[in-house]
Design a protein around this nucleic acid. Sequence first.
RNA 1: GCCAAGGUGGCAGAAUGGUUAAUGCGACGGACUGCAGAUCCGUUUCCUGGGGGUUCGAUUCCCUCCCUUGGCUCCA
Length: 480
Amino acid sequence: MRRFTVYDSRTRETRVFAPLSPPRVGLYVCGLTPYAPAHVGHGRTMTFFDVVARALRRWGYRVFYVQNVTNLDDHLIARASEDGVDPLALADRHFQDFRRSMDTLGNRSVNHYPFATDYVPEILAQIRQLVEKGYAYVADDGSVYFSVAKFPEYGKLSGQKLEALKPGARLELDERKRAPEDFVIWKATTPGEPSWESPWGPGRPGWHIEDTAMIFRLLGERCDLHGAAVDLIFPHHEAEVALAEAASGVAPFANYWMHGGLLLMEEEKMSKSLGNVALLDDAIERVGPGPLRLYYLNAQYRSPLVFQAGKSLEEAREAYSRLTVVYDRISELLERDGPERPGAELPEALGDAAEQLVERLDTTLADDFNTREAIALLFGWTRRLAEELPRLEGYSGSALEELAQPYRWGEEVLGLFVRAPTGPTGAWAAIVPVALAARARARARGDYAEADRIRDELRAAGVELEDDSSGTRWRAAPPG
RNA sequence: GCCAAGGUGGCAGAAUGGUUAAUGCGACGGACUGCAGAUCCGUUUCCUGGGGGUUCGAUUCCCUCCCUUGGCUCCA
């Protein structure tokens, strides 16, 4: 297992990671409440934690990655009643869309997506435990509240002081609560809402408790890594800490807290309630998964990242095509001729450099997931090989494999370079070469009008041609 | 007001108590090309919010001020 460090927002310092029971690592990331389509901010957070899981697995840890789905809450109920549909069905539909987006983006490292409503027995058991221990109380209407005053350490994760919280603008007064900072963990339901039987009457889970109940069930009373974006530190994660540590009596609940920076929409947080949302699927469709991942991972994960509507994606697309030019060529040659293709072996210095670079990539990422620096190293490799571009054709399959190693690393760990299965396939693969041969003959006899006509027709059909010294190559036109 | 994270070239964004402050985008110049595109090469030596302090040396450490963003019970 490779040693790595991680910035722990609980202790506010960068710490060497030590799993509770190596080599297993329990990773829990707060997923979303699927009441609307996912936006590019969700994409950033999920892509980052996907890289965390990929890296840990590469380094020999056995990661169990859980990402919950809050498939029932006030938003969902409100939205569903507007549309006249069932809230659980609405959540399910949006979650399926989210899964598809994640899949396209290359975020496939989650082992389990538990739904809140599938853990009602665990949630009820934890609530009962909290009531018995005196941390929670039952209100007149059958709702159950967590009594923040009973957990004096409340505020330790976010650095908030309870006294400072009281004047908080959004703290609602509610006569069912004993104190304004108490939060609901079991909501008495009104008729028509999905509800479950409980010792306190029909109700549904509050927000924070689903996470602790799921974690206790799936990962244990403590977990190794708990993550999400920073906007969840307070109150959500603070509440989780209180619930979990009160219930179990064991601390710390999460050994390491990781909080990713937000994606800002032109200097302002993107959020559903502000309405300044760029949809994730639109971004994927516009530039494809590779450039989008490059954009996300191109910044330190804790820094805020400003999303500039057109510009950010355009720039990422340009940068991505620079980054992939050598790897694309290597992949083409290997695909065309197979790994046994004959040719020159690699100069020793270049082979060594490739090997050393892979090691350096791992150590760079092991420094609090410095994806940006790793990407800079990959650009450096590309710059070095770019000069070899005309000579690539002459290398053997194994030499090309060696040159590709840093890119393979980028594929495995960062999820870059995944080739979207779009563009001309099947019949195209047979027709295009015929057209190219005809065009080559036209060019040879100086009939450029004919050559350009062929090129234009292929372009209209979505095939871009590129002439270079070795002949003409073709590819699917980039999206957009 | 309180709690956090930030402020680096035209732009996006790294890093570091010390020779030319990474990388990418853009721009400019060149190579290649029938043209175009793609690609390659070169240039973009005067970029670390203001003010103090510690130090032989600060962009980095400390203090302070200013500004931005987030949180202060909807949020990835």
